[in-house]
Design a protein around this nucleic acid. Structure first.
Lengths: 173, 173
DNA sequence: GAGCACGTACTCGGATAGGTGTTGTCCGAGTGATGCCGG
DNA sequence: CCGGCATCACTCGGACAACACCTATCCGAGTACGTGCTC
């Protein structure tokens, strides 16, 4: 299994899309899910988690919806990862070193068990490197990369799709 | 859940212990498991995986056992991780970008789907950083760190424990 | 025409399946060393 | 004294159960907006 599953992937895609929505337009969870063909109920759950972390802000009631909680350039991938999967360690130390046949007779081993387990320390270093890399990239960066790859037309169409969706909602009600 | 579970932890502890065994002594899987109070059958499975990767070498039959396949300074933590959990990606891209409501009418989007997904690219970078960190540490490094922390006595006792265990085996049979 | 009740369209949170990976165990089969027993 | 045979201890590999987590869905409850009805 991978450390970061569909939750993170859905969250990031949803956020990148959300960062492309024009100001004043509030897409609903259904809008955001439909745009990328994600399961609606699951997307709602993810948005709730992101709201708890302040990454998005939701307004309730009819005509309500979601917008980014702060500017896309101030939301890192690490923020999103931490928000969706709270405290997912790369490695969970079980303190195996404490269970050694040598000191079976009850006496605690002394300095061998103090501090961080040497194996754990390596893993913590790797985790720090990974998180450091994730914190270097923001939603704005990813958005820019996508924009560079796709046609100017596609970007405009995306914005138009969301505006149409939300206004359509309001008119039919 | 963490990316690296008990499997990796058990493997590393077992290998560090194995690196401390005097030359010519062949601890059995039971010896290695008992020393750290790990489940025996599971330890056997892990040793099999490590053997397939050439990290340890096992000799069958009575009086058989395990030894390192190469010197401890040539076995990195990354080697062990890859051996025990084959190809565990940090993140598995589901190509969400291909499922977009914009091009619902069958036309493929063109350049937006070629190359690596921007989100995926960030994750790949993080994974590379993590693996790079893991490849910097060898079993010998970890062994040295442990040795620096524990008393000289403890090290000698460890070696003695394994020698006694194996000779005891042979004498009782 | 003003005020109030209702319906609608959202969000929020918990409860709950289904699937999948991991942990851990068990068992049969193969292998090599040792010891016994008959020649 | 020597060779064959049984036994033992060990590894190897697959099958299997228990468990936890992730994905996904569903439902009840709360909230805001608009509409229509009543006075």
């Amino acid at each position: 299994m991978s450390l970061y599953g569909a939750r993170v992937e859905y969250a990031l895609h949803t956020l990148v899309n959300l960062s492309r929505v024009p100001d004043g337009v509030l897409p609903s969870a259904r809008d955001l899910a439909d745009f990328q063909k994600l399961p609606v109920a699951f997307t709602r759950k993810i948005l709730s988690q992101l709201e708890r972390a302040g990454i998005v802000a939701g307004t309730e009631g009819a005509g309500g919806g979601w917008r980014l909680g702060r500017h896309a350039s101030e939301i890192t991938v690490l923020d999103v990862v931490d928000a969706t999967q709270e405290s997912q360690p790369l490695f969970e130390c079980r303190e195996v070193r404490a269970r050694c046949a040598l000191w079976d007779d009850g006496e605690p081993p002394g300095p061998a068990v103090t501090g961080v387990c040497s194996i754990h320390a390596v893993m913590l270093g790797a985790e720090a490197a990974m998180r450091g890399e994730l914190s270097k990239h923001t939603l704005a960066d990813i958005g820019a990369t996508v924009a560079r790859k796709s046609s100017r037309d596609a970007l405009r169409t995306t914005a138009a799709w969301f505006t149409e969706r939300t206004t359509q909602r309001r008119s039919t009600s």
